[in-house]
Design a protein around this nucleic acid. Structure first.
Lengths: 145, 145
DNA sequence: CGGGGTAGCCGAATAATAGTCGCACCCCAA
DNA sequence: TTGGGGTGCGACTATTATTCGGCTACCCCG
């Protein structure tokens, strides 16, 4: 289904998704039409969900990054979810099991903005916020064997 | 420094980082040499940190995704951090303020594996684990104006 | 006010890459 | 043995990337 060559390709694209088919062909030992065909199939099957760019938010003034746990007040779950979705400074959010219903990542330019955005949420949820000091593990792929 | 055209380019690449320079040129209204030059500068300045691929872990049998909060035992902070880094099923980890020192994302194939991996960490830390039920906000960029 | 430097853009030409196609090979099942 | 699906290849054509010279707008400072 997904063999070692596909894994080579995925790893190579993880490092740099703008690599040419030719470069991918050299890495994998296939010809470039074959690589094109494999990518097409990986995309078709949904193994590859998309190709994206990694942007450094600090270059846009987002000096602070926070992890926010959100526990909606009774009956406010959907409202809170929509609220989080509608605030673009929340750049990820997962709905999880346990007392907290959501964990989200928030990028802000200042403490004032952090306070302002959390206040909005706090109208319908309790929040628990931790500031990110450092990224210990940058986004990576789990093992694929 | 970073104008509207750069933002157009970044958004276009966020949607699909394998777009050709020609396509980006059409989107931005520039010529393709100009687009190439802008990308080069965005990369050089570190605004663009890289181009990556979005892979669906479920296709590799990772049925479960968990958010793990980790509180190392006294004196074990560095050991725990190294341990997390060395377990490839942890696909992200941030060091944060507060009682929990780390929040990490973990992909596993089964409850057994979840238990096994957490047991390893539990030798030197307390953990608090929540299973991801749904992704409310898929990874996106904060506003860039 | 005007030279000179710089930054950014363009078009055209060349170099490189991507896409298309017909065919070969392998594996397996009839 | 035969035939079909799946995957690969090389060679060709179409498309894209890169390079380069020159243009314009802007700014700094004499």
């Amino acid at each position: 289904m997904t063999d070692e060559i596909d894994q080579l390709l995925l790893n190579a694209l993880m490092e740099d998704s703008r690599r040419s088919l030719k470069a991918l062909a050299q890495i994998s030992g296939l010809s470039s039409p074959s690589v094109a065909e494999r990518l097409r199939r990986l995309e078709e099957r949904g193994v590859i969900k998309g190709y994206t760019v990694e942007v450094d938010p600090r270059h846009f003034g987002y000096q602070l990054q926070a992890i926010v746990r959100v526990r909606p007040l009774p009956g406010k779950l959907h409202e809170v979810e929509r609220q989080i979705q509608s605030i673009p400074e929340f750049t990820e959010c997962d709905k999880i099991t346990g007392e907290d219903c959501f964990v989200a990542r928030l990028h802000v330019r200042s403490m004032e903005q952090l306070d302002e955005l959390l206040d909005r949420i706090n109208a319908s949820a309790e929040t628990n916020t931790a500031i990110v000091k450092k990224t210990s593990v940058p986004r990576r792929l789990p093992p694929m064997n």
